[in-house]
Design a binder for these strands. Structure first.
Length: 435
RNA sequence: UCCUCAGUAGCUCAAUGGUAGAGCAUUCGGCUGUUAACCGAAGGGUUGUAGGUUCGAGUCCUACCUGAGGAGCCA
């Protein structure tokens, strides 16, 4: 029995005979020599099977292997300049676990396919090199997020998925008909609960799926997406901005450090990511509106930015842009107004460079009980549903704040993708529930 | 929800209102260093659905279905 290894580890076994279990990615034939490309989840490796060196029947079996057949290859690892990963495997034996029949071949060939076809075959598309690379960058980004908060005094306190009331608007909530005493909804943010846990733990974060029933149909939207939301007691807007900046720099650094190969597969211009260092440029909403108007945007003070506006603003910078103090009117009810200018709120958005738009939204929350109560009334929200939330202002209220970052938008930016749908294994969108 | 565009072979796409075609995939044959390998041959079609105009519709018209891009809204 030869030692079992993986393609990623194969280089350590140069000169040895090893076993690698995987799938046939592709096969090139040239008469008496064939080149099966093996895929094992850690990478791709070219194998070489020479007719004269193998039993007749085995060579025939290898020659007739079909794409994505499951195989266990035994062979000697050999360093080779010609190989993509630097190493090749000289085949000594191949055990076929399952041969994909040619009557029903693997549908995703190594050629071009349209997005509809690929999305319908998402369960298989994940095996392709590009999707593999994207999801590994996603994993790295998530690990970096967790490492960042875990090493900066934050406690992970996850918030519920079923919630009794809206955090923001009611129109974009998914209703769940199960609970006997009340209607329930799928969460659209863990923030309100985070505010409670922050008063218990000081600094907290939650990281989970979020659901928005927005009829959005753009490259930046998913119906179900993952959001990391830190919340900090005794923090003001400036502290929120500082943490957001530090976290983004940390994530980018980690991806550059550990996922170079994946970024290469994705043909990502890493110099764009290497430029992402503190300090990020900062501007107020007021200035952003002036800049947009000078660039020909039709935006007026008081309006929210469109996708094009975000691109216009961020195009002047090589790193994320922080815009703060938006009009109070267009922000959520819990946003702390600027003490000197109550018409603007202490909220901040972080716009990723290269036109990727908003990846982070956050700010300082209202800590004054009377003001919060007034805002609930202005927004015509049911006071009863927020009784526990109001308690947080009754019992030891403090200035506090936090933000939310959509992981898919962040990964789309890190990878340089056209669309967020490729950044999650099984995207859920307005017209996409399968597979 | 609204606007725009698109549905033709398993896939990616051609076809002036006049005989539905190519590349890839599949099958068969050839090739001892291929890199989305290459060379030769074969099979493969209710042109999204239902109507309509016309001597004749993949092509023009109407409705519907499916999808893509964008808008508003948002991370």
């Amino acid at each position: 029995m030869h030692p079992r290894t993986t393609i990623a580890e194969a280089g350590r076994h140069a000169g040895e005979t090893v076993q690698i279990a995987g799938w046939l990615y592709n096969l090139r034939k040239s008469g008496k020599i064939v080149f099966p490309i093996l895929r094992d989840g850690t990478g791709l490796m070219q194998c070489v099977a020479v007719k004269s060196a193998l039993p007749e029947a085995l060579f025939e079996t290898i020659k007739d292997l079909t794409q994505e057949s499951s195989i266990v290859v035994t062979g000697k690892v050999r360093a080779d300049q010609r190989a993509a990963g630097g190493y090749e495997l000289d085949v000594e034996d191949i055990q076929v676990i399952q041969r994909v029949p040619e009557s029903d071949p693997y549908p995703i060939t190594p050629k071009e396919h349209g997005i509809e076809f690929l999305m319908d075959h998402r369960h298989l598309w994940l095996r392709s090199q590009r999707q593999h690379a994207i999801l590994r960058v996603r994993h790295e980004a998530i690990r970096a997020v967790r490492d960042y908060f875990d090493s900066h005094g934050f406690t992970l306190v996850d918030t519920p998925i079923f919630t009794p009331a809206a955090c923001e608007g009611t129109t974009t909530l998914f209703e769940v008909n199960y609970f006997e005493d009340a209607k329930a909804y799928l969460t659209q943010s863990g923030q309100l609960y985070n505010e409670a846990t922050a008063m218990a733990f000081g600094k907290v974060y939650c990281f989970g799926p979020t659901f928005r029933a927005e009829k959005s149909k753009t490259r930046r939207h998913l119906t179900e997406f993952w959001m990391v939301e830190p919340e900090m007691a005794y923090a003001d807007l400036e502290e929120v901005k500082r943490v957001a900046e530090e976290m983004v720099v940390f994530i980018v650094g980690r991806v550059l450090e550990n996922r170079r190969e994946e970024l290469r597969v994705l043909e990502r211009d890493v110099s764009k990511l290497e430029a992402v260092q503190a300090p990020f440029p900062r501007m107020t909403y007021d200035d952003a509106v002036k800049i947009l108007q000078s660039k020909g945007s039709e935006i007026e003070w008081g309006g929210d930015f469109g996708g094009t506006d975000e691109t216009l603003l961020s195009e002047d910078f090589d790193r994320p842009l922080m815009v703060d103090r938006y009009p109070t009117e267009i922000k959520a009810f819990y946003m702390q107004p600027d003490p000197g200018r109550p018409e603007v709120a202490m909220g901040v958005d972080v716009l990723a460079p290269e036109g990727y738009g908003e990846i982070i939204g956050g700010g300082q929350r209202i800590h004054d009980p009377e003001l919060l109560l007034r805002r609930l009334e202005e927004h015509q929200l049911p006071k009863e549903a927020f009784d526990w939330y109001l308690d947080l202002r009754k019992y030891g209220t403090v200035p506090h704040g936090g933000f939310g970052m959509g992981i898919e938008r962040c990964v789309a930016w890190l990878c340089g993708l056209e669309h967020v749908r490729e950044t999650i294994a099984f995207p859920r969108m307005l017209y996409r529930l399968r597979p």
